[in-house]
């Protein structure tokens, strides 16, 4: 079964063709990061406008790459939330029009479920259910139990900033541009993580995260000492990243030690962070738990993961109504 996935919830306009939920036949992404860089952040209106420009060419390109026509597609899956309303609407309306015009079944997919499914694409070894998942991106930091496709339980979430948001905001404080996560990660490699003393936030409070205290500590450090350069900049990045990683890893391990899981899945843009990957590798190896992290391009927003999640929803007999709506505040458990 061939599913066409469409994703437009934030920065990327993407389309993919996925076979049986597991094999990516073709995918295309038009990224807006270059457009946004000039503004120091995601600008929603621009995002919506650019999605309108990109969505049809991206779908055309993916069909061409897969060497098929719409008549060979079996269903359409589209991200319907959470995300920016204007951006989501572009994907949802396009998907509805194509589904209606071609008489194809339509499925609305939760973007976060997409991230959880990315780990099933193009691999032999997949996690078994139930497994634990750490979702870390610009808008999300959540610890989730995946009981089955479509059945999720939220164990913890951020009480303030998301992990990726903290990276972006700290990057902005340090004059590193947007998105700053990869650059902070790179600078951190040559920095001394013990150089700057930052607070260890959220030691208690169950499995919830908090990153705003660390961000604020960097802000007050910069206010006091100015924006650092060269080695001092690397040291500050290393110290900041070490605190964020320590919190993500310690809470995730707390959840992992609670009961037996069929592996740990880590997904979302921050899953590309090398410091986080290394720390998780060490901790899961020590516990004899399998770690599943999608490839970097599948950690960030993409349409293949949406097609995958859509496929499993279709198999359960789900169909979206013809008036499927974009749901900016959609949660994983709703």
């Amino acid at each position: 079964m061939l599913v066409l996935g469409i994703e437009s919830s934030c920065d990327e306009t993407a389309a993919a063709i996925v076979e049986d939920g597991r094999r990516v036949v073709a995918e295309e992404v038009a990224s807006q990061i270059a457009i946004h860089a000039g503004f120091g952040g995601v600008v929603p209106e621009i995002a919506a406008r650019a999605h309108v420009v990109h969505v049809l060419p991206v779908i055309d390109a993916v069909l061409k790459r897969a060497a098929i026509g719409l008549s060979q597609v079996d269903a359409i899956a589209v991200t319907c939330g959470p995300g920016l309303i204007g951006a989501l609407l572009v994907g949802v309306q396009t998907a509805k029009a194509i589904a209606f015009g071609c008489g194809l079944p339509l499925i609305g997919v939760n973007h976060l479920e997409g991230h959880l499914c990315a780990v099933f694409l193009d691999v032999e070894k997949v996690p078994s259910f139930p497994h634990l998942a750490l979702l870390v991106s610009g808008g999300h930091s959540e610890i989730v139990v995946a009981h089955d496709f479509g059945k999720y339980e939220l164990l913890g979430a951020t009480r303030d900033d998301a992990a990726g948001e903290a990276f972006d905001k700290v990057g902005k404080l340090l004059g590193l541009g947007y998105p700053a996560g990869p650059l902070v990660d790179k600078l951190a490699r040559t920095g001394d993580r013990a150089a700057v003393k930052l607070p260890q936030a959220m030691r208690g409070r169950g499995l919830d995260f908090s990153f705003s205290g660390i961000k604020t500590a960097v802000a007050t450090h910069v206010q006091k000492h100015g924006v650092p350069t060269e080695q001092a900049l690397s040291d500050l990045c290393a110290s900041f990243q070490a605190q964020v990683v320590a919190q993500l890893v310690s809470k995730t391990m707390l959840a992992l030690d609670e009961k037996k899981f069929g592996g740990l899945v880590v997904s979302g843009g921050v899953a590309c962070n090398r410091g986080l990957r290394q720390a998780l590798q060490t901790e899961t190896e020590r516990r004899g738990v399998d770690l599943f992290i999608p490839s970097p391009e599948r950690c960030t927003d993409n349409a293949a993961m949406i097609a995958c999640a859509g496929y499993y929803r279709l198999r359960r007999g789900e169909r979206a109504p013809v008036d499927l709506k974009a749901a900016p505040g959609l949660s994983l458990t709703s």
Partner: peptide, 13 residues
């Protein structure tokens, strides 16, 4: 009810 940062979502209700 978690009251998080609305920076990415723009609006939290």
């Amino acid at each position: 009810r978690r009251v998080g940062s609305p920076t990415y979502t723009i609006v939290n209700v």
